[in-house]
Nucleic acid binder design. Structure first.
Lengths: 155, 155
DNA sequence: CACAATTGAATTGCGTACAACTTAAAAAGC
DNA sequence: GCTTTTTAAGTTGTACGCAATTCAATTGTG
């Protein structure tokens, strides 16, 4: 009897079979898990990602930050203005090239790193897995990310 | 010599070691990969997720959709209004409980399923992996999602 | 039955994301 | 050297995503 109640000729589109949804949901879960921890520092999750970049490469340009996080200026400019307004960073035009804006950590931005380390440890702990397991999964997801970005009609 | 150039006492916070960023980035990559395909149907990626739910459970309430997608009414109400304005669904109060709004697919919403199957196949194909591999990774990510959601200070 | 507590959507406000466009500065071409 | 092209940020408009609040309908309790 075809056309019964829930006739699934294609299990391909069942929500629970979708890797894309699993990733979408996990991304939100990470944001939510980090939220109470980042609230204490006073930054949002995307702002925390920007700080991760700056702790590694202080003085990066808006474009460099965007290149690492895959975000464009339309997202970063207002976000950086908020980080600046809250005292975490300073934004200044590069003397040698007035087109680029360099973002530097303030003392406050530098200090926030300590709390970030603690936050990250708390999350890892709550995952109840080993660091190697986390890195293994990270590698798989990064590989997926790469394939998605290098395949489309463009590029 | 401590404090050299890029002194990393804690590789814990290196961007490329962050599972959370890998997931964050992959989620955006999925959205971008689906975009040109969904553009042809005329829906956004989150709207597509709602359609996935409805193709499986037509007539779901706003709350039921949100329960499956982990989205609240603040996100869904305007999204559903747009889906309705574009002719994919209808929204009506439940006769037995005037608080709940039931969402039903229109003929157009039902028909869009065909194109969605094609879109999903195109994405899977671009990943150059087998369906079992995709499902394996999906399982790992879903497990991660679960741990993140059941650990926090709440719950 | 009356009334308090709960529930389901909707609304408001803020912060991403991204497409499309603008503007200013630098690089390239002639 | 002057114009054309390219590049880097910023701006504008639309669509999420979520916290917090509101409002109406239903449920629970005395």
């Amino acid at each position: 009897m075809p056309h019964t109640h829930k006739d699934q000729d294609t299990p391909e589109l069942l929500l629970e079979n979708q890797l894309c949804f699993a990733v979408y949901s996990a991304a939100h879960a990470f944001t939510a898990a980090y939220k109470p921890l980042l609230d204490q520092i006073g930054v949002t999750y995307p702002q925390y990602l920007v700080l991760l970049v700056l702790w590694e490469a202080n003085g990066s340009s808006v474009g460099e930050i965007g290149g690492k996080l895959n975000l464009d200026s339309g997202t970063l400019t207002p976000l950086l203005k908020r980080l600046e307004a809250q005292g975490f960073v300073s934004r200044n035009r590069d003397k040698n090239d007035e087109r680029v804006v360099r973002v530097h950590l303030t003392a406050m931005g530098r200090d926030a790193r300590i709390h970030a380390v603690a936050a990250r440890r708390a999350i890892v702990c709550s995952l109840e897995t080993t660091e190697p397991e986390i890195q293994k999964l990270k590698t798989l997801v990064t590989e997926l990310d790469g394939r998605l970005r290098t395949s489309g009609p463009n590029r």
